[in-house]
Amino acid sequence: QTIHNGDQTYHYDNPEEAIKVAQKLAKIYNLTVTVKGNTVQVH
């Protein structure tokens, strides 16, 4: 599972963990989380 947060990319073995982290980032920075296959984008 990969999270793209602007210019930063994070890799997680656990998809659920990746989505949790993405949602935390989204709340902190007031962003949107988009899940596309194995990629979670925060923008």
Rank of each mutant, 00 (worst) to 15 (best):
Q1Y: 07
Q1A: 12
Q1R: 08
Q1D: 10
Q1F: 11
T2W: 13
T2S: 11
T2H: 13
T2Y: 12
I3T: 11
I3D: 11
I3H: 12
I3V: 12
I3K: 10
H4F: 13
H4W: 14
N5D: 10
N5E: 10
N5M: 13
N5T: 11
G6Y: 13
G6V: 10
G6D: 08
D7N: 11
D7K: 12
D7I: 15
D7F: 15
D7E: 08
Q8D: 07
Q8P: 05
Q8S: 10
Q8T: 13
T9V: 14
T9P: 02
Y10C: 13
Y10A: 02
Y10T: 02
Y10F: 11
Y10R: 03
Y10P: 01
Y10G: 02
Y10I: 04
Y10D: 00
H11Y: 14
H11I: 14
H11S: 09
H11G: 03
Y12E: 01
Y12W: 03
Y12L: 07
D13R: 14
D13Y: 04
D13C: 14
D13E: 08
D13L: 09
D13K: 14
D13S: 14
N14K: 04
N14H: 04
N14D: 08
N14Q: 03
N14G: 04
N14W: 04
P15V: 09
P15T: 06
P15A: 12
P15K: 06
P15S: 06
E16Q: 08
E16D: 08
E16V: 06
E16N: 06
E16F: 07
E17R: 06
E17G: 02
E17H: 06
E17C: 11
E17Q: 12
A18E: 01
A18R: 01
A18V: 01
A18G: 01
A18W: 05
A18S: 01
I19H: 10
I19K: 12
I19V: 08
I19C: 14
I19E: 09
I19M: 13
K20E: 08
K20M: 10
K20W: 13
K20V: 05
V21M: 15
V21K: 04
V21A: 15
V21I: 09
V21G: 06
V21Q: 11
A22K: 01
A22F: 05
A22Q: 02
A22L: 04
A22Y: 04
A22C: 12
Q23T: 10
Q23K: 12
Q23F: 07
Q23R: 13
Q23Y: 09
K24N: 07
K24S: 08
K24F: 15
L25Q: 00
L25Y: 03
L25W: 08
A26I: 11
A26G: 05
A26M: 14
A26D: 04
A26F: 07
K27F: 12
K27Y: 12
K27N: 08
K27A: 12
K27Q: 12
K27S: 10
K27E: 12
I28M: 12
I28G: 02
I28N: 06
I28P: 01
Y29R: 12
Y29A: 07
Y29G: 06
Y29L: 08
Y29W: 09
Y29C: 15
N30F: 11
N30R: 06
N30A: 06
N30C: 14
N30P: 02
N30T: 05
N30H: 12
N30I: 05
L31N: 02
L31D: 01
L31R: 03
T32Y: 09
T32S: 09
V33W: 01
V33E: 00
V33Q: 00
T34H: 04
T34R: 04
T34Y: 06
V35Y: 03
V35C: 04
V35P: 01
V35E: 01
K36H: 13
K36P: 01
K36S: 13
K36R: 12
K36V: 14
K36M: 13
K36F: 12
K36Y: 11
G37F: 04
G37W: 04
G37N: 04
G37C: 15
G37L: 04
G37Y: 04
G37K: 02
N38L: 05
N38F: 04
T39G: 02
T39K: 04
T39V: 11
V40A: 01
V40W: 02
V40K: 00
V40T: 01
V40N: 00
Q41I: 15
Q41N: 07
Q41V: 15
Q41W: 14
V42R: 01
V42L: 05
V42W: 03
H43Y: 08
H43M: 07
H43G: 03
H43N: 04
H43W: 11
H43P: 02
H43D: 02
